[in-house]
């Protein structure tokens, strides 16, 4: 049955892509969970990660899997800079201020990127062969992206659960004033969480380059901002782990629906997948407003 083979193939691909979606949303959820700030400029940080991967590969021939750590460090540094320059002043500001500020940061990053690298699409090809699953052909590079996402998410999870600093971050997420009463330096946790959130986002941009057939450009982030919001809401908004699992679900829905839509005569499936994904989001939110994987949200 070619239909089921195609569906299975697309679902495998969806799961792989979903892991990268999940990783690219964890930073957004972490920042929202700790600081209660929605980073509307999320996508441009992914773009920076993508350019990091591109330049590391074309200039130095460094494989994207290794560039992840470079992007993570750059992202952490950038996160601290943005936090102390902008976000710190907005901690208790009204939502509109933080939305505008993060939106502005996003545009700023895009325009700087355009100024330096130009508006054109660029691409690179990291061909290390493919594995034949008989139903579909999966490049090793994408499998490595899949593994990297899971490893990073797992390491973050362990850091949260097993370290004192991780526990402090969880405490601030649950109740920042309660955390202050315990002697936790809440301001420092804000800075650290923001930096880690940006670090994760930039790092995920490296992996995104392995999934963009048309290449990367300074404006590529928008699509990911949009998807990240859907995924974050699916995952319960404030939980990085919820976001990671929701990324899988989103990837499966997006790619699964592609196959199903393809069977309808006269329908161009690609343009409809996003419609299906967002419709499903609406349905899920109608049934469970706290998100598919979210418990109570404050």
């Amino acid at each position: 049955m070619p239909f089921f083979e195609q569906l299975a193939g697309n679902l495998v691909y969806g799961a792989i892509l979903g892991s990268v979606y999940g990783l690219s949303t964890m930073g957004l959820s972490l920042i929202f969970g700790v600081l209660r700030i929605v980073n509307v400029g999320h996508g441009p940080f992914i773009m920076l990660g993508a350019f990091t991967a591109f330049w590391m590969f074309t200039l130095f021939g460094i494989a994207p899997v290794i560039s992840i750590s470079v992007a993570l460090v750059l992202g952490l540094a950038l996160g601290f800079v943005v936090f102390f320059a902008v976000i710190k002043r907005l901690i208790n500001a009204p939502e509109l201020s933080t939305l505008l500020a993060t939106f502005a940061i996003g545009i700023f990053l895009e325009e700087v990127a355009k100024f330096i690298w130009g508006p054109d699409h660029r691409g690179y090809s990291w061909d290390i062969g493919s594995i034949d699953l008989s139903i579909t052909l999966i490049p090793y590079s994408k499998i490595l992206a899949f593994i990297s996402s899971i490893v990073i998410a797992y390491l973050l999870y362990m850091w949260f659960q097993k370290t004192k600093l991780g526990a402090a971050v969880r405490a601030v997420v649950e109740d920042s004033e309660g955390a202050a009463a315990c002697g936790i330096n809440v301001g420092r946790i804000y800075a650290l969480s923001f930096a880690i959130g940006i670090g994760l986002t930039v790092a995920s941009g490296v992996l995104v380059t392995l999934f963009v057939p048309v290449g990367i450009n300074p404006y590529m982030g928008h699509e990911y901002t949009l998807k990240a919001f859907v995924i974050a809401v699916l995952g319960g908004l404030a939980s990085p782990w919820g976001a990671f699992y929701a990324g899988f679900i989103f990837g499966l829905i997006e790619n699964g629906s592609y196959t199903l839509l393809g069977t309808i005569p006269g329908v161009e499936p690609f343009s409809l997948t996003r419609f299906v994904a967002f419709s499903l989001l609406l349905v899920i939110l109608l049934i469970k407003p706290t998100g598919l994987l979210g418990g109570e949200s404050k």
């Binding site: 004192k164 649950e174 109740d175 309660g178 002697g183 936790i184």
Partner: peptide, 29 residues
């Protein structure tokens, strides 16, 4: 807190999805 002064806030402000022990251990931060 490091100087020996702390507060029991109005409305408790516990960490609701952590265990009792975890709450206490965080108190000793």
């Amino acid at each position: 807190v490091e100087s020996g002064l702390t507060i029991v806030l109005e409305g408790r402000h516990l960490f609701p999805s952590m265990s009792v022990t975890e709450n206490l251990i965080l108190g000793a931060y």
